[in-house]
Every structure is written in structure tokens, then in C-alpha cells.
Design a protein around this nucleic acid. Structure first.
Lengths: 254, 254
DNA sequence: CGGAGGCAAGAGCAGTGCTCTCTTTGTTGA
DNA sequence: TCAACAAAGAGAGCACTGCTCTTGCCTCCG
């Protein structure tokens, strides 16, 4: 079994973890990582519903009951994978934002971040389904999924804030009906959105949901025999979405 | 068992079915309907992953193996439920469209149809998840889910076509990059979209996906502690979506 | 160095989807 | 009308699942 675990050496998912104390804790961390790795592998090939604790244990050369020393239930293992998935997609978004640099083509950067999320989703369909598909059976998202879940949104908001600071954002129209909720939204999310106008915040939240609507439709097969050039369609739709939150940018800049 | 089935009497899900021929066929139709009803009940309370053939059979007072005379596998039963769900949400949309009448407030009618879809989804969360959430395990959507799946889109498109016929649609901007795919889309969907300009068709497809992005986010809990007045937020977002496809309408008409 | 606790192993329970065989029962053609 | 046929239910059984409990080993810490 140790040979199976060797690949997971040094895989600490909680970076803030204290220094290695004993061989025991070290072994525990390695086994935990190995379980998650194998579970992720099965998740990728079989899907969440067919993820089997016994199969994971079997593959790792241990007995199924031993696995319960590390994860109290199958749902807890799934939750760990969910948190990891949120982190992975969040990191993909952050890296894309870093790659996109700091120019004034905010819409372009926005689209690039979204495209990175889409690429990650296409590469990890089952993990994507785990976090943005239907929630698993009896499961209710525990609190620890909230911070990593906000990472993608955070990146997108950051770009709009930058554009706003440069005075380049034109707030979308906001009716009297929707104004109160938009104000509330802007207030509650102030930590993320700063001084963005309520109309922009409301449009951002909608765009955030709509982004994942586009990705989900593509990934879950609803675009089958409808949209063919999906990448181009996605890029186009996201440019429109960027415009909807008030970012400047013609339909197809060079 | 017959007492359990009595409630399903006259429940023919295929209206074009030929006249009742024999007691045997009649019984078969009733049992099939009873199985689907009970399965739907369990789906609503337990979720798709916990839908159990044995439990359905138990509840109906029959032995599990007998159920295989009606549905060759669990997945087939699920598929039947999926088709029914598509039909149900499609009918909800169509009824909303009929209720909305034929005025010139196309954006208002559009929003009302979308709101009906949302209401249906909130009332049938697990059925919604079945069709717009992550696809079930090994399952690939069979061809017979396509026509019912198009009903919602059909209604939304119909409203835009009506507005277009009245000359009230201003096509959204369309970049050179996206133009070819938009042309292709408009060509392939010509049967549904008629003579709508490619830019409108592309925006429509995106709006279609984005609508379900909004509903999914609300239903799957991503708006938890983010959006509070979800109905108002939804209405506002959908009005913006209507504008994005070219329907006329200020942000908040009286 | 010896107790305590982390850990693996194994058996076992209740449940699952699905298959097979056997019997009953409605339908239908000669 | 009655026998042949086929549809349908019953029951046993297989391989699998998540999960619990008990039993020992073995490492770490005082």
C-alpha cells in the first residue's frame, strides 16, 4: 500500500497546516490524500453517484472499514472533494486573471477568466457537476464550502471594480422595482464589491449565475445538436454578459 | 394492490393511445402509471439518487422482480420520469404564455413565461434537478427527450418572433467573430426561429441557457445568503435578458 | 518501559439492482 | 370450447453497497 501512497507525498491540501510533528500524523495526511486522489479518479471515470467507498479502499489495498478512520461517511468524502473542486476552479480563474495581466481591456480579461472556468469544467466534468449540478442526495452544503466557492466570483468582481475605479463602467438600467434588492445586495456584498453601484452589483450577480448556466448547458448536453462552435458561442455570449454589467467594449474588438 | 392502483385509473400519459383493447393492456397501463407515480413521489421526497426500485415495488405491494416487467432497468424508469418532467415544465410554460395573452408587452410576457418555469422548478426541485442538473451516472439522454425538452424554448422563441413580426425587435450587436456561428444557428433552428436575424437567434440561445442558470443557482443553493428577494431579483434579471435579445421595454414599466 | 490510543482487519447487517426459475392467469387461434 | 401460448407475479439468489462493531497489533508519549 505504501507504494500506492508514494505519489501523494507532500500533497497537503491545507497549506496553513503546522509543521510535520510525527510519523503518525504524516502517515495520516498521506493516506487521507491518497484516499481523496483515488476517490477523485473514480469520480472522474464513474461519476459521483457511482463513487464507492469499498472500491476506493480496494484500490488502495485496504479494507473498507479502515477508510472510516479518515472519513466518517461517504458524504464527508464527497464534501472534501467538493471543497477541493471549488478551490481548483477558483485557482483556475485566479491564474487566468493573472495571465491576462492588467490592461484596460477589461471585457477581454473578463472573458478570459470565464473561458478558463469553462476549460476547467470541460476537463473535469464530474467535479463540475458535483459543485454546480444538482446537489447530492440528502446532502446540504456545509459552511466550509462557502469561502472557496466565492473565489471565481471574487475574480470577476475584481475586474469590474478595477474598471470602475478607472471610470469605465456604465451602470445598466435599474428599475424602481428592483432598486431596493439591488441596494441590499450591494450592501451585503460590500466587502467584495466595494463601491460598485447597486445596479452593477445586481447585474454582476446575475451574470455570475448566467455564466454557469452557459457552461452547464454545454456540459450537460443541452447544446447537443444546437450549438456547434461552442467555444466561439461562449466567447460571444460572455462578451455580451460583460457588456450587461457595464464593462466597455464593442461586440468584437480586434 | 388494486386499491393502490385505483387512483391511477384513467391516467393515460400517451393521449394518442388506441382504444382500450383488453383488460390486460388496461391493467398494464395502470400499473405502469402507478409505478411512475410512486417513483415520482419518492423522487420528490428522497431525490433521484435515492430512488429505489425495491422501495417503489414495496410501496405498491408487489415484489421487486415484477417491476422489471414494466421497466427493464432503474435507468429506464428514470428516463420515463425525465421525459415527463420535460413535458410538465413545457406545459407550465405554455400555459403561462396562454395566460399572458397577446398584448404588445412582449418583454412582460417573456418574463411571465420564465417566471412560470421558475415556479414550476421551485415546486418540483428534484424533477428540475433531474433534467437541468448533472446528468445521472452512466446515462446518456436518449433521443425521445429532445422534443419535450424544446417546449420551453419554443414558447420563448414564439414571443420574440411575434415581436419581430411587429417590427419591435432591435437585434443586439454581433461581432464578426461570432457571425458565422450565429448564421449557422439561425439556419439550423430555422424551423423554430423562422426569419429572426442571426444576432437575435444567438442571443436567444444564450438567454435560454442563462435563464436556467439563474433558476439553477437559486434552486441549488448558490444564492443562499446572497440574494434575498429572489423573485424580484429573478424578474429584474429576466427583464434584462429580454432586453438582451432585442425585445423593447424599459427597465421597469408600470 | 508500560499504558493508551490510533489504526487495520474481519465479520456482519440491512439494503440495493438485477437475473433466474417456477407458477398462475389472461388471451387467442383451431 | 379448449388447449397452446405468452404475459405477469412470486421467490430465491448473486454481487454489490454503506456502515457498525469487535478484536487485536503497534506506535507514540509520559
Amino acid at each position: 500500500m505504501l507504494s500506492l501512497l508514494s505519489g501523494a507525498l507532500g500533497f497537503w491540501q491545507t497549506p496553513g497546516m503546522s509543521a510535520v510533528r510525527g510519523a503518525r500524523e504524516r502517515a495520516r495526511a498521506e493516506v487521507t490524500a491518497a484516499i481523496k486522489d483515488e476517490a477523485r479518479r473514480q469520480l472522474a471515470t464513474e461519476g459521483a453517484a457511482r463513487l464507492s467507498l469499498r472500491a476506493v479502499a480496494r484500490e488502495l489495498g485496504m479494507v473498507s472499514s479502515a477508510l472510516y478512520r479518515y472519513f466518517p461517511s461517504r458524504d464527508d468524502l464527497l464534501t472534501a472533494l467538493i471543497v477541493d473542486a471549488y478551490d481548483a476552479v477558483g485557482e483556475a480563474a485566479e491564474q487566468a486573471a493573472a495571465r491576462a495581466g492588467e490592461g484596460t481591456d477589461w471585457a477581454g480579461r473578463w472573458v478570459e477568466v470565464a473561458a478558463a472556468v469553462r476549460v476547467w469544467a470541460l476537463a473535469h466534468p464530474h467535479e463540475y457537476g458535483l459543485i454546480y449540478g444538482s446537489p447530492v442526495p440528502g446532502y446540504t452544503a456545509p459552511g466550509d464550502t462557502v469561502p472557496p466557492a466565492a473565489r471565481v466570483a471574487s475574480v470577476l468582481i475584481g475586474i469590474v471594480r478595477e474598471a470602475h475605479r478607472a471610470g469605465a463602467v456604465t451602470p445598466p438600467p435599474l428599475g424602481d422595482e428592483a432598486a431596493p434588492e439591488a441596494e441590499r445586495l450591494a450592501g451585503d456584498l460590500a466587502e467584495l464589491t466595494g463601491d460598485l453601484p447597486p445596479a452593477v452589483v445586481a447585474a454582476l450577480v446575475a451574470a455570475w449565475a448566467q455564466l454557469f448556466g452557459l457552461i452547464s448547458f454545454e456540459l450537460f448536453g443541452h447544446f447537443h445538436r444546437v450549438v456547434e462552435d461552442r467555444e466561439r458561442f461562449f466567447t460571444h455570449s460572455l462578451r455580451a454578459l460583460a457588456r450587461s454589467v457595464g464593462l466597455p467594449g464593442g461586440p468584437a474588438p480586434v
